[in-house]
Amino acid sequence: MDKNANIVNLIVDGKEIKASEGANLLRVCLDNEIYVPNLCYLKEMEHPPASCRLCFVAIEGYPQPVTSCTEVVREGMVVMTDTPEVRRLQKSAFELLLSVRRISFCKTCIANKRCGLQKIARFLGVKLRVAHLNRIDVDREVDHTHPYLDYDPDKCVLCERCIFVCGNINKTPMLSLAHRGLNTSVTFFESAAILENSCKGCGACVEICPVGALTLKSHNKVTG
């Protein structure tokens, strides 16, 4: 908590919470051990992208649930993270995310057991294989062009965290989203020669990836 900021009182799920004014609502919830599913939020972000559509909460006085990562705390705020409406929105958003992913190989995935998707599935009580939605197979191969990294577009949830952390370390992020629609993917730009000059292989993007879509090349070699 920031000592210089004014302290505001709010109620989350019936629990009274003190937080500094203007703090991010999702952050406040997480800091007070109230888990709200999220994939794309990082505490360093000034403007969270709100792209995963998972951190919905109901706030009293609002006509419908809102993404908590784009809200700031105010005095007297009453927040509920567990209404049926909120859960329904979260489940739909999560299942839609899963419907374009190949989840069949959790066991061989390096993110197994620490995967953001597994955690949220357990929390929401959703199966990782969504039966009632048609799977869309976008046939995409693992991108091996990067000198240090491999990128699997099938696992990627397009949370843009890797782009954010890369931009924090380097002046301009080496990674970017390319193409659009179902073909959207993270790109390093083709030329390996350029990448070798600019990317130092710090692995920050691999570290931050919630699903193991980005992996260091050496790791892949070890596990085959």
């Binding site: 380097n170 970017s176 390319a178 193409h179 390093f188 730009f189 350029i194 600019s198």
Partner: peptide, 14 residues
Amino acid sequence: LDLSPSHVYGVATF
């Protein structure tokens, strides 16, 4: 423009 090539590529492919 002082951007990374991947940024330019990302915008262009959109």
